[in-house]
């Protein structure tokens, strides 16, 4: 009886797609009409990329409970890998797609190799190990020209084709949200969360915690790889500086503000935060620009002290839940 009823109700996923397509058409229309000028289009793209990367970190930290301070390193791996690929194969939609896939795959592979040993560590030890990994990666990127001259080392890599456009970002952003939703609301997702909640108890009920920690980490870093690939082809220039420790904190901030373990939270925070930062850049006079960097950590502290769960505190928009649960919520 229950299953029949549920089957006829529209899937919330369908609603999500309708909302998304509506949003896309609206934004594209605004661009054509010139309401959204190229500057704000760029900001919008950046927001989408931040969203993808932050979703990945939320999977790692918010859902699986593994605190990583090295997210930007995987973002960098994706960016450089895809840029190398499109520069070698020549620009085009096909190579961009290939670049994104390759960037994600390489980031995931690196995550797998580094994750196997270090995910054994707990909370702050894991934090400091991932931070160390991020710094090592930055040093390697700084010296990359010694091995691959095209990567440019500390002076940066240029000559990347500008292939990332709004439809690309939108399509991957939407896919990222839907994949994440389907993953989180599944048996696999519950296994991930059980690791976050109590690793020992998870082991005690048959969850191979090493496996699921690695799984969450690898998928989350794969997200970072996708984001990095889109980023590389948005600005056409890469510098190791963009993938340092501060960048990792940036993403962490979005995840924390939006809410650990909430897709909706990351969605709202990624977009709001990117636009706020850029908005302040435009709105504030040059003399007080530096204050942005002061306000930013203050927001972080205030949230930790007064609303550690973030804006959404483990809740979701209705259309991001798979199906209304039976009984009272």
């Amino acid at each position: 009886m229950r299953t029949d009823g549920a089957r006829r109700r529209p899937e919330p996923g369908t609603i999500a797609v309708i909302v998304a397509v509506g949003g896309f058409v609206l934004l594209q229309a605004l661009m054509w009409l010139g309401v959204l000028n190229p500057y704000w289009q760029q900001v919008l793209n950046l927001a989408g990329i931040t969203l993808i990367s932050a979703l990945g970190l939320n999977l790692i930290y918010g859902y699986t409970g593994q605190f990583s301070l090295g997210h930007a390193a995987f973002y960098g791996v994706g960016a450089y890998a895809s840029a190398l690929l499109t520069r070698s194969l020549g620009p085009g939609a096909g190579t961009l797609l290939l670049g994104i896939v390759a960037g994600a795959a390489l980031a995931a592979l690196v995550a797998f190799l580094i994750g196997l040993p270090i995910l054994r560590l707990r909370s702050d030890y894991l934090a400091i190990a991932t931070l160390g990994f991020g710094i090592i990666m930055k040093v390697l990127l700084d010296n990359s020209d010694a091995v691959i001259p095209m990567m440019g080392g500390s002076s940066g890599m240029s000559g990347i084709a500008r292939l990332t456009t709004f439809p690309w970002v939108f399509a991957f952003g939407l896919a990222a949200v839907l994949v994440m939703r389907n993953l989180v609301f599944s048996s696999v997702g519950r296994a991930l969360v059980s690791v976050r909640e109590d690793e020992l108890a998870a082991e005690a009920v048959g969850i191979d915690t090493t496996r699921y920690k690695t799984l969450g980490f690898v998928i989350g870093c794969g997200y970072a790889g996708v984001a990095g690939a889109l980023y590389a082809h948005l600005y056409a220039y890469l510098n190791p500086f963009s993938f340092d420790f501060l960048k990792s904190i940036d993403v962490l901030l979005v995840v924390v503000l939006g809410g650990l373990g909430s897709i909706s939270g990351t969605l709202v925070a990624a977009i709001a935060w990117t636009f706020l930062l850029e908005g302040l850049r435009v709105a504030l006079p040059a003399s007080v620009q530096d204050w942005r960097m002061v306000i930013y950590p203050l927001v972080m502290i205030v949230f930790m002290l007064f609303r550690p769960g973030g804006i959404f505190a483990r809740t979701e928009f209705g259309f991001l839940k798979p199906r209304a649960r039976r009984g009272k919520e």
């Binding site: 519950r190 296994a191 969360v193 059980s194 909640e197 109590d198 108890a201 969850i207 483990r314």
Partner: peptide, 14 residues
């Protein structure tokens, strides 16, 4: 040692 932030149903099915 329950999974405190999971629902009762999820605690069991996980």
């Amino acid at each position: 040692r329950l999974f405190r932030e999971l629902t009762v149903l999820d605690n069991v099915r996980v």
